[in-house]
Amino acid sequence: MTNSIWGKDHSIAQAYWRTGYADFPIYDLHGHVGAHYAIYMKRCEPDTMACHLRRAGVKHLVFSHHEALFGNMRNEQVYQLCRSQPDLLRMYVAINPHYPERIREDLAKFDAWAPFAVGFKFLADYHNERVDSKAYEPVLKFANERKLPILNHTWGGSCCSNSTILLAVAQKYPGAKFFMGHSFFGDWDGAVKVVRETPGNVWLELTAIPGESGIIERLVQGVGSTRLLFGTDLPWFDEFQAIGGVLSAKIDEEDMRNIFYRNAEQIFGENW
């Protein structure tokens, strides 16, 4: 252990090993709240999630509610939920392309949901509607005008949110900030291409990647650590598992700091 990454004096890894946190805040930019049909989640409500987040030194979790994505919960209710953990929770307004009237209503309320609502969440594969379809246009235009983030669920080979589709969309809406959830998992060349061929409005979000051998290194090499964002899908995945995965990558501590918090602060500021 002495010669391991955990034993290196004054390192980030050593701090996490000893105490569970480091000398900086973490921003988890890919989370959820609420039960999910496919798996059992013991800690999926704000109070129980907050304990886990605070232990890991997470300052903000930006989430979309499972029930708003898969059920009929409205984003107004999600906004009310945020107020139970006002210092910790921020929300992506969940967009379901099959309910245009709900989208209109939510866009009209967006400003009233400050400071909690910070962007939008697209789950195109699950809703089986391509991100470049008409259904998403009102949100894309809104985000483009206001320079707001959109967290997209992306995956290599997906039908509705693959790298080809998202490249074209990100080029078409250069004002919007595109967070590519899961970094087009598996399509690493496509992920790099999307960042390189867009005008600085794309970031690759790391949920499901930390811990995988060699992937973070590959993305850092391809696009630079300033284009990567930390996320966990909490309550799907453990914060410490993901943090440990970043600490395990063969990248330097400046890269790690970029991933854990600096890039988020570049986008949202230090107090948001």
Binding site: E212, D238, Q241, A249
Partner: peptide, 19 residues
């Protein structure tokens, strides 16, 4: 750990800080 697909460090920290 799941080596070689997964790196030991992620699971080790998860366990160490599991409560």
């Amino acid at each position: 750990s799941g080596l070689p697909r997964f790196l030991p460090g992620s699971g080790m920290l998860q366990l160490k800080q599991s409560g």
